[in-house]
Design a binder for these strands. Structure first.
Lengths: 295, 295
DNA sequence: GATAGAATGGAACGTATATTCCACGTTCTA
DNA sequence: TAGAACGTGGAATATACGTTCCATTCTATC
């Protein structure tokens, strides 16, 4: 059953072999191949049953996968990955000292070197996320979710820097079955897109300083049409804040003039999934279809 | 059974507990204690039988040792060390901590998710960011920035879930003065938007599983037109990976089918600002206007 | 030096795990 | 469209593992 003359003997060889033979695999085998490439640690450390459940396949399929690569079973492949893991770990330092090494690494971030730029952004975004956790209360999130849930139709808008957040919200809310209109302003049709908003609808407006004119006007229009407004913004005194039924304030990290969106997207994700849970809990209607875990 | 009131809950606590109680142990137990302190990785990764053989004791003695420390058996202690091992090697700890997170989420699924959801997403995204720092090398970023810098015109595309990332990239690159075309697919004009791509141009394609057809086709078209392709994706075997001049792999956190974008956006931000620095360093031309460094 | 108590080694046990096997479903081919 | 080859899911099986138990050995105390 060995499909190849040579069996991979190191973690790197295994990786290369999978990439090389990926196209010849069946659909399910490709699924496993992706999981192995993307989460090698899981396969190395967890039991087959856990790996199977996590990757959404049967344990037997994993054994088949290993055999397709020339091993006698799944276990030799696991051992390979495990050994590689240990080798990497010990290469970094001796057991206990690795922790100190990491601690030292954490403290030195912040210097202006170009090579460490990624590390710096990671730190900043991490801080922004931590700040979000501390400042955003459960009550605020719960209230926002309630507003969203009660809305007949959801209108979402956000331009310029806020556009990625708005598009993420629009896409995700549609995914969970919420009736959503994405006001993207294509063709200068912003007014028309939002024109039909009514009393039972909700506008989610995402906007950061300097606040886009179109968004401010749209909020005004929505309020005068009797609709409620939920604002995700960076300041409680932003032009939208006074008109909004609720303001979710997000403080993003800023590095040399460029602001991140990590905290905003984390909040957006929370809103979407909280809504999905809320609906699920409310008693699974036919209309709503929150994602279920695979059986 | 439990020799002490408190049972060590982390690798560090375990280490401290062993040191503290070392003198009270019997000869054989001291032998095991030394082995655990000197070779924690072995105990974490190997089976009990292997550890026993390697340390020159009986498996039952190791179980006794664990019980002397207050555990119900050797396995809980092993898990502790394994978790600690992974925590040091954060790129690996990602998988394990996600597992714990999933376990916690499963136990309270349906009812207990009152409002801690935000905190959990913060954790998730923080982990994803940390993982990004560990796995993405400077060389990879530098090479990507070089590709971007050398491109005459930048084409950026990404649909569905990747759309927020693509729109962020497009917006930001335009902000730093890079000639950029955002292939947004409005009006079904994807082909036309990307039709003019040439040999000296670069296409940045953002795509996650399941990969949007339009993006795959666009990458094919770009390659056959002689353009280079930079892919930001979640798997090295994604349809675009083979055709791309470079692949930047990003592992995002995932909850019940909903993936975050925190890591992707952090990477995107890094690329943009790295480009700005690169240009600034190259000798501030008139055309380019990168943001100034902080005062 | 004798005896009580603890500690130890190794076999026996139950459990959890990887693997195998087969009926069923799916996808090409004639 | 019918048939065959292949792929797949899940139960059945064999194996390996952690744990327990008890006879024996060691150690401390009188």
């Amino acid at each position: 059953m060995t499909g190849s003359a040579t069996v991979p003997r190191t973690a790197e060889e295994l990786r290369a072999a999978i990439l090389e033979r990926y196209d010849t695999f069946s659909k399910r085998l490709q699924q496993i191949a992706r999981f192995v490439l993307d989460h090698p640690d899981d396969l190395a450390l967890e039991t087959l049953a856990v790996v199977a459940e996590r990757s959404g396949v049967q344990p037997s399929a994993i054994v088949r996968f290993a055999k397709a690569l020339g091993y006698s079973g799944a276990m030799p492949m696991q051992r390979l990955l495990r050994d590689g893991l240990l080798a990497n770990h010990t290469a970094l330092g001796y057991g206990e000292r690795v922790r100190q090494f990491n601690a030292a690494l954490d403290t030195q971030a912040g210097a202006g070197d170009d090579g460490e730029l990624l590390a710096e952004f990671v730190d900043r975004d991490t801080l922004a996320l931590e700040n979000l956790r501390q400042t955003m209360t459960k009550a605020e999130v719960a209230r926002a979710v309630k507003l969203i849930d009660q809305a007949q139709t959801l209108y979402i808008m956000g331009f310029r820097r806020a556009f990625p957040v708005a598009s993420y919200l629009a896409y995700s809310f549609q995914q969970v079955g919420k009736r959503t209109v994405f006001v993207d302003g294509v063709g200068g049709l912003t007014r028309q897109q939002i024109g039909a908003i009514g009393e039972s609808d909700l506008l989610i407006a995402v906007s950061y300083h300097p606040y886009a004119e179109e968004t401010v006007h749209a909020v005004e229009g929505a309020v005068s049409a009797g609709a409620k407004v939920l604002t995700i913004t960076d300041s409680l005194v932003s032009p939208m804040a006074k008109m909004a039924a609720q303001v979710l304030q997000v403080r993003e990290s800023e590095v040399r003039g460029f602001r991140s969106l990590a905290a905003s997207l984390c909040l957006a994700q929370t809103l979407v999934i909280s809504l999905a849970f809320e609906r699920e809990r409310a008693g699974a209607r036919n209309a709503s279809r929150p994602r279920r875990r695979k059986a």
